[in-house]
Design a protein around this nucleic acid. Structure first.
Lengths: 230, 230
DNA sequence: CTTGAATTGTCGTATTAGCGACAGTTTGTA
DNA sequence: TACAAACTGTCGCTAATACGACAATTCAAG
């Protein structure tokens, strides 16, 4: 992948789009591309945070493993998504595992380069602080969802989240399609495959989505949105 | 309340304890004391964030109200706890309601004063960034708890959290007592009073805690810790 | 000490959802 | 096309828990 591919991605991402051109250039040259096969580890819980990642292609699964060995999926990172920033800012170990869910290309900005950027341009702090706040707010609304929605409501919320993440934060339209197994949805909802199956069929019967083997299409975006309103 | 009371609280809080003495002084003079009666609003969801708060005495309830009008309690802020920082850093509206649960004394640092502090001392950014990261990590572990623990496990986790918050992050010992109604615990767990009642009695039968009318005493801290291990 | 309000203890019932089992369907690969 | 692997659809049983009802207990204010 060439610098000319990296440049537009950095300069259009919410993480860096508001930054001056010379800083973008500095990042473009510092960024490194990593290729991973399905199942490979990006990082593991308790690892030292060595950098910030952006998904260029493929999917990365962020998860935690319980004492009993069950994997709880936090979410998937998709093309255009950034992750791994917390350890960057507080220097503490990773709080979860990150695995390649499919073959992946990741852009990596090392902690060293990122810190150098901040030392050189301390005026960037407020910007990154706002990004951190955004993460906190997302996490809080996740907790609100968890507490006040039925499983069906949460399922709708997750579908929307994944659909939104899909195309670089592009708006969702009726017809947007996303690929995910019912098993994976269940792991993300801390539910069971069978229950997710039943709920998806209910949603299909309500003409909200259409499901077909690991692929679901949003039929009625507004209704979906309503079903996960808090 | 005199400056001499405010000073040690600021200089010992995790938010400000690592800061130079002159900055502490600047904050001490800028801080204002607010008194609230039970039930009074500190701020409301969607309000503009006008400041950062520290509980001096009493308890503040952070909560959200669902569409159906049910109040979901996030947590209680107790003496020594700081809250309200997110809106301060990103300028966006409050994400939840804050009410006085009991008569309260709150120390308030206005957004204006806090921003002035940051403008004057930009080297403080990394410090506050780390504090934000800490909040994210707490929130993430809350989500982990939600996903992997039984209701009983979550109950143990909440009890520990409240007990820890109790005495300015003092270590918990067997014998630590905290006051909270079963109804409140249920609202925080998104469960029912009756179920919480049953679980508390189970914990009492296991000699983990002792319960008596809105007051519970930790008998076996280690066992409690084990019960909410992820 | 008395009394009313708040809180807790305990039923029974209805609902939700987890989970094993197994058959049916689709997809990718040769 | 053929076949295996992965995924989905469905049933039935069981466990967890929400919730209404009501009695019992405790607390706090006179």
């Amino acid at each position: 992948m060439h610098l000319d591919t990296i440049r537009p991605i950095l300069s259009q991402s919410p993480w860096f789009k508001s930054l001056p051109q010379d800083i973008i250039e500095q990042l473009v040259t510092a960024a490194k591309l990593k290729r991973l096969e399905t199942g490979q580890l990006v990082y593991q819980k308790h690892d030292l945070g060595d950098g910030l990642y952006c998904v260029m292609s493929g999917k990365v699964r962020l998860s935690n493993v319980t004492l009993e060995g069950k994997e709880l999926i936090l979410t998937w990172m998709q093309p255009g998504n950034w992750f791994g920033e917390i350890s960057l800012f507080d220097g503490l170990p990773r709080a979860h595992d990150a695995h390649a869910e499919t073959p992946c290309e990741l852009l990596k900005i090392s902690s060293h380069d990122f810190k150098a950027l901040l030392v050189e341009h301390p005026t960037l702090y407020p910007h990154f602080m706002r990004l951190l706040c955004q993460r906190i707010r997302t996490t809080f609304s996740f907790i609100d969802e968890t507490g006040s929605l039925s499983l069906k409501g949460k399922l709708c919320g997750r579908i929307l989240l994944l659909a939104e993440g899909l195309e670089h934060q592009a708006p969702i339209e009726n017809g947007t399609t996303l690929r995910i197994s019912q098993e994976s949805l269940a792991l993300m909802l801390h539910s069971s495959r069978q229950t997710v199956n039943k709920l998806l069929q209910e949603l299909q019967a309500q003409d909200v989505i259409q499901v077909h083997y690991g692929q679901m299409t949003i039929i009625d975006y507004m209704k979906l949105k309503t079903l996960c309103q808090i």
